[in-house]
Simulated scan of single mutants.
Amino acid sequence: MSPQTRLAHARGWGRGRWRVPRLNTGETERAAVLYRRQRRQGLLALVALLGLVFGLPLVFAVWPELDHIRLAGLPLSWGMLAVLPYPAMVALAYWQLRRAERAEER
């Protein structure tokens, strides 16, 4: 048994049942608006991610010359496939996080 499991069992279930907090009417409406706004923003970020993931093969199909251009002995298309998506995904995640935080601050 892992130490984490032992800790969890040692704590027991004596804390009682967790209940969902109740919000008043104004807070409920604000939470619903915030949820819809962040869901819309999240879907936009998801579409951008899908565009990145499915756009690269499309770029390679449209410009097959990228296979013939070499950087450090490797085809440019391999470099784009191995390097480009990760910084782009980090930038996309940062962009989405900032937008979600701004939505909460309003």
Rank of each mutant, 00 (worst) to 15 (best):
V20F: 12
L44M: 11
L74S: 00
G51T: 03
E101Q: 13
A103T: 12
A10G: 12
M1Y: 13
E65R: 07
A93S: 10
H9Y: 14
S77P: 04
L49P: 04
A88S: 04
W18M: 10
A100T: 09
P21K: 08
A61G: 03
A100D: 08
F60N: 04
P64N: 00
L7Q: 15
M80E: 03
L74C: 01
L56I: 08
A72Y: 09
H9M: 09
L81T: 10
Q4T: 13
P87H: 00
L46C: 06
L81H: 07
L81W: 09
M80F: 08
T28D: 11
A48W: 07
R40Y: 06
E105P: 00
P21E: 05
E29V: 14
D67W: 12
Q38T: 10
L7Y: 06
L76W: 00
E65S: 08
Q41I: 09
V20D: 10
A103N: 12
P85K: 03
V83C: 00
L7G: 12
R37K: 10
A82L: 13
M89W: 08
L58H: 06
L23H: 09
L97G: 06
P3L: 14
V83K: 01
A8V: 11
R15F: 13
A72W: 12
R15E: 12
R11I: 14
L92R: 00
E105C: 01
A61S: 07
E101L: 15
R6M: 14
A93E: 04
L56H: 01
R98G: 03
M80V: 06
L74R: 09
L66V: 01
W63I: 05
R11F: 13
W18Q: 10
L34C: 06
Y35H: 14
R39W: 11
A103V: 01
Y35W: 10
L97A: 14
E27G: 12
R40N: 11
L84R: 00
R99S: 13
P21L: 08
T25V: 14
V20A: 14
L56D: 02
L58C: 02
P75S: 06
H68V: 01
G51E: 03
A45W: 04
M80N: 04
A82W: 08
L66P: 02
G79Y: 08
R30C: 05
N24L: 07
G26Y: 05
A93M: 07
W78Q: 05
T25S: 13
A61C: 02
G73E: 05
G79P: 01
R102I: 00
A72N: 07
Q96E: 07
L46M: 10
S77I: 02
A45I: 05
M80I: 13
Q41K: 03
A61M: 07
E101C: 09
W18Y: 13
R40W: 07
L46V: 06
